[in-house]
Design a protein around this nucleic acid. Structure first.
Lengths: 242, 242
DNA sequence: GTAAAATCTGCGGGATCCCGCAAGACAGAT
DNA sequence: ATCTGTCTTGCGGGATCCCGCAGATTTTAC
């Protein structure tokens, strides 16, 4: 049995190495990669079936790497090990996990025991292990009370990228007015209509920009989500023209 | 001599602890805090003169903490120890460092030796130590070729927060038109005028939102900068009304 | 002290955004 | 079959944004 560790922080990497050795005595080879790019390469080269993956790496983040790895081998077992339970990450992961795949999402703040247990559950028992806190975010994100639909999320990403209404319409095959309807829903849910500087008459936010700001502060989107979205956008643009 | 370590990651914290012990034998007490908030408390309580501070912590980030600490004791020596050299961080630090204060900015990817050297230089010799890479960002940020003026940066923050033109004008005591002039400069520098989807006639970005997106992707602003800016905004709003 | 450069400001207008209103399309429930 | 709720689309209009133009004010240079 082999395990591949993808993690850019040397300290965390060696900690993970030890944890894997301790939790999985049946493991006879531990590979290490310091970013998503070489992680992909090693996974492909060794046909890795068991991977521990950090999110938030410089060269290529964990979600990107996991996506391409899962595209090639959907039965790969991946344990995501991250500092944060940002909704952007949680959502990003749920988007790419293949049907019936075994995966896990454990926070770095978890105890050694929890990590060990997660390693065994996922790699040996093919069981999903989602951290309690992550689970909470996931629930809230999907629950339609104060949660965001897939379409709403799409449009949020689009305005965060700086697309114009017309472009969004074209991208999703919608009319201009429909896009604006969705924007209204979004503004509603993000509670962006509050006044600012109540002192004299006019005082509102620029709804569009404010929506992005609020989404960022609520961790609904973050740098890596934006990065991915930008790549998708460029791909779409290329495919459209070429 | 005492040293205070403010760092939320337990692994990094203990690594730092060891590094301090090794580099500074004359140090007889090492304090630890797991976020900016308790870091502030400990610094006040112990009148700490030597601090190693992580940026990017959950409860209260390093820049916030450093700002209040320096406000109380401007001669405190602080070594910032961060994963990234984002322009947002570099700028945030330069903004708050008091006149003539000794401080440092070292990346976590630096070697043990570099860290040790930095610790001694700052704490013993009162000398500034800025990581090579950080220095580069700092230079580029200040150089007016493709660098951003203070005012341009201010206005960038404002639109990132979702303020409307009129609000920005009011905040900076400018006319509406002047604000829009600055926005134009900003759009120019952020290279936001590029077309998108050249295939058929119309294809532009929403300049305002796109500017924020580009700034985020260039690490000109990030979550913590936005958080700080939001706090400042609320403070200003409160002071304006009360 | 004067010229040059940069910045601030008002005016005006085209483009975009935000949204109320209302009619059609579609799905699921009774 | 009908009804209800959600989604979509068009129209129209007020608010805002983006920006060229030109005059006024401030700063900088020599």
């Amino acid at each position: 049995m082999e395990v591949l560790i993808v993690e850019d922080d040397p300290l965390h990497r060696s900690y993970l190495h030890d944890a894997v050795r301790a939790a999985l005595p049946e493991c006879d080879l531990v590979l290490e990669a310091e970013n998503g790019k070489v992680g992909e390469g090693l996974a492909r080269q060794h046909r890795s079936a068991h991977i521990v993956m950090d999110l938030q790496m410089s060269e290529r983040n964990g979600i990107e790497a996991a996506r391409t790895i899962w595209k090639e081998r959907p039965d790969t077992r991946i344990l995501f090990w991250s500092n944060y339970a940002d909704e952007a990450y949680v959502r990003g992961v749920s988007r790419i996990v293949p049907e019936g795949a075994a995966y896990g999402y454990v926070l770095k703040s978890a105890s050694d025991d929890r990590l060990r247990l997660a390693l065994r559950s996922i790699f040996m028992e093919s069981q999903c292990v989602i951290d309690r806190e992550v689970r909470g975010v996931q629930q809230k994100s999907l629950g339609h009370v104060n949660g965001f639909t897939e379409v709403e999320y799409e449009i949020l990403i689009d305005i965060a990228l700086g697309l114009t209404d017309r472009m969004i319409a074209r991208r999703h095959n919608l009319s201009l007015r429909s896009v604006q309807n969705r924007l209204q829903q979004l503004y509603e849910k993000l509670n962006v209509y509050q006044r600012i500087g109540e002192d004299d008459g006019e005082g509102r936010y620029n709804l569009r920009s404010r929506a992005v700001a609020v989404a960022l502060m609520r961790k609904l989107i973050n740098y890596s989500a934006l990065e991915r979205a930008e790549a998708d956008l460029n791909e779409w643009l290329g495919g459209k023209q070429g």
